[in-house]
Computed example of a mutant assay.
Amino acid sequence: MNRKKLGMKYPVFICDDDPEQIELISKTLWTAEYILSDVEKVEFDVNSATNYGDALEYLKQNKNDGGIYFLDVELGKKADKDNGFDLAEAIKKQDKRSQIVFVTSHADLAFIAFERRLGSIDYIIKSSDVDVFKRRVVETIEVALHQLKNMNYIKKTTFTFKIGRQIFNEDMNNVIFIETTDVLHKLDLVKTNGLGQLIGTINQYDEENPLLVKISQSCLVNPENIESIDLKNRMVSFVNGDRKVYSRSNVKKMKQLMQKYNYTVRSLKVDED
């Protein structure tokens, strides 16, 4: 039986003032899809532009998260204005996980990318040897996908929240639960290492954090830090000793969590109905 591979589609944007160069990279990406689709299927959603202005318009219309960008450094033959480095800065402001690849005819421009702290993953020199260039593109794409997967893992296992203009990152293992307070949009964050407060809503953090589970309209929990579930009294006990009631609509969800995480049964009162 042939089983369909699960896969990921990655946005790729190419900006080069030479249409033939765009076509070469695009065709190489099609090849890369086949080469890199081993365990999971890899697909690229490719878009392109031939000048700085059209590239900015693409960024305005497409809010990518973790896109791959091939940027010609010398856009319009101008190395000092509206070039690939300037475009990279605009991309970095919008797409924090962007994977930027500079493509140029001049190796000596590589230091500028470092000096401007653009964090590019590669600097590919345009070559008359097409096979060498294509091989370098495929290798660079492989690096980009590896880095994006690592970023996805870190994102999933990190709880990120904002207070004012400051952004805080907390190891998801430390989060026990989040619950509403008497103050609108102010939440309590209960952790294994202390307490904190957040601004936002339960629904907001539920959508942003797939590892957390909503047990009621007022409480979002980390299932890894549940100690037991009392099905008869609809009560969840946590590793810090706290207990919270879950809503009747979540009974099935609680039973699924019990099966998945094999919580301790010493304090459970299982309702067999």
Rank of each mutant, 00 (worst) to 15 (best):
Leu220Glu: 01
Asn193Gly: 02
Asn173Tyr: 09
Lys155Ser: 15
Gln204Arg: 11
Ser218Leu: 02
Asn173Ser: 15
Lys214Gln: 05
His185Cys: 09
Thr160Pro: 07
Lys162Gln: 12
Tyr205Leu: 05
Val236Ala: 13
Glu224Asp: 12
Asn173Pro: 04
Lys155Val: 04
Ile163Val: 13
Asn173Leu: 14
Ile215Phe: 03
Ile215Arg: 02
Glu224Trp: 11
Ile215Ala: 00
Leu184Glu: 14
Gly196Asn: 06
Ile202Cys: 11
Gln197Ile: 11
Ile154Tyr: 13
Asn173His: 11
Thr181Val: 05
Asn222His: 07
Thr201Tyr: 13
Asn233Asp: 15
Ile226Gln: 02
Ser228Phe: 08
Ile199Trp: 07
Pro223His: 10
Ile202Val: 13
Leu212Lys: 03
Leu211Asn: 09
Gln217Gly: 15
Leu189Cys: 05
Met235Gly: 01
Pro223Trp: 11
Ile215Pro: 01
Gly196Lys: 06
Leu187Ser: 03
His185Tyr: 12
Thr160Cys: 13
Cys219Asp: 04
Lys214Ser: 04
Gln217Cys: 09
Leu187Gln: 03
Lys155Arg: 15
Gln197His: 11
Val175Asn: 03
Phe161Val: 05
Thr192Asp: 02
Glu179Tyr: 02
Ile202Ser: 12
Phe177Ala: 03
Ile163Met: 11
Ser228Thr: 12
Leu211Ser: 11
Arg165Met: 11
Ile167His: 12
Asp188Ala: 05
Ile154Phe: 12
Gly200Val: 08
Val213Lys: 09
Asn233Leu: 14
Ile163Tyr: 10
Tyr205Met: 10
Asn174Glu: 13
Asn203Arg: 14
